[in-house]
Write a protein that binds this DNA or RNA. Structure first.
Lengths: 217, 217
DNA sequence: CGCCTTCGTTAGAAGTTATAACTCGATCGC
DNA sequence: GCGATCGAGTTATAACTTCTAACGAAGGCG
């Protein structure tokens, strides 16, 4: 992005085709999930035949990893942009839900069922901690002190096990808030996106905002 | 189960072989996830070749559906047995976590990333509501009334949208407790099983029991 | 004892990922 | 401008997968 225009036409074409491949991949994933993604089908859709895609991605796994990276990047940018626009933790919560509902399978690419063997590359875990940082920033103000014995016990644990927030000056109360923000909202969101609430007759948004109110009270 | 012994030896053999197939399937799923399950590989492991398995399952989808059914059945039995042994909501929470840690992929078969097209058969949703019933039973006693305006608003919503608990006499406060039990614990559990906490240096069990204390306070 | 159901086999179609070898066109250096 | 080189896309092929079809062989049942 910094020094543009220095790219050869070949690199332009290559980048453009890579993007086009990923575009088709996202459509397939939205339709049939990540397990139903087929390189062959993408190639057919693009009018070229099979192995041509291997010029652009080493294989199916690399394509999926790239999509996971993009998903993380998109979430991190969304969270960061929302935070920079002055939103509080509640604002982040609503932004998270909107982002998830916008493309459920993209959410599941990040937080869904993992493949036992798979380990994300380091740069992806960097983005993940970037997200956590933004959460910790937003969890700072209005730091509600522990209001139950259970809360303070958790805060004590977090005060001693804060490796994940080592570079962040947030106090234990903020650590606890950020963590609960993550786990509680993910709990509702993942069940909602998986359709576990359908047929129950309740409104997930009501549950979600209730938890959000509780967290930012 | 009721009138046993009336089965022909063929039916016995058939049931035994079906069970053996499922056993190998579980091992494969534990090793490579549901996406990595291969009928062919199972057949090879059992010393028979390929299409023989189609005598016992109509196809890969039916086998997976059967495994999902068994997973639900196992969870429902575990929850019900724990509840019948006099455990309270906290006891159910610990039983749930133990059950999930015992076989993470089995947990993900129920609560993991859904395949967009898939709809569970009715008998499976019956088991799901059986689980919810046990939760509602346990959420009954010690029904903490709403202690924040947000809580009471959620309870008001649940009082009017209680289709999922239509056959259960639990008051709105119990509905809320059971629901939060489900979503909050699932949030932590699914992130833990997915390995999202690894490298963070915190103990998921601490977080889990903290939420559990909070729910049963 | 004979029939008949059911099991397990091999053969094959249609799909997938992925590699190898090759052609052709564009780009780059001279 | 011209030749050499690099890279895109092709087809062919191997090794998988699910799943159907047709066949042989073994068992249980009347």
């Amino acid at each position: 992005m910094a020094i543009a225009g220095k790219e050869t036409p070949r690199e332009r074409y290559r980048a453009q085709l890579r993007a086009e491949i990923k575009q088709h991949a996202w459509e397939q994933i939205a339709a049939a999930g990540a397990a139903g993604l087929s390189l062959n089908a993408i190639a057919k859709q693009m009018g070229m035949s099979g192995p041509a895609l291997y010029r652009y991605f080493a294989g199916r796994d690399e394509l999926i990893t790239e999509l996971i990276r993009d998903a993380y990047r998109s979430l991190a940018d969304t969270i960061r942009a929302t935070a920079d626009s002055g939103a509080d933790l509640a604002g982040l919560g609503h932004a998270l839900r909107a982002w998830a509902l916008d493309d459920p399978q993209r959410y599941f690419l990040i937080y869904g069922t993992p493949v036992p063997g798979y380990h994300a590359p380091d740069d992806i875990t960097m983005i993940a901690s970037e997200i956590m940082d933004a959460l910790l920033d937003a969890a700072q103000p209005g730091g509600t002190p522990a209001d139950t014995p259970g809360d303070s016990r958790l805060e004590a644990h977090l005060a001693e096990h804060r490796g994940w927030a080592a570079n962040h000056p947030a106090p234990p109360a903020a650590l606890r808030r950020a963590l609960l923000f993550w786990t509680r909202l993910h709990g509702i969101l993942s069940l909602e996106l998986a359709g576990q609430f359908t047929g129950m007759g309740l409104d997930p948004a009501e549950l979600y905002t209730s938890e959000l109110r509780h967290l930012t009270r």
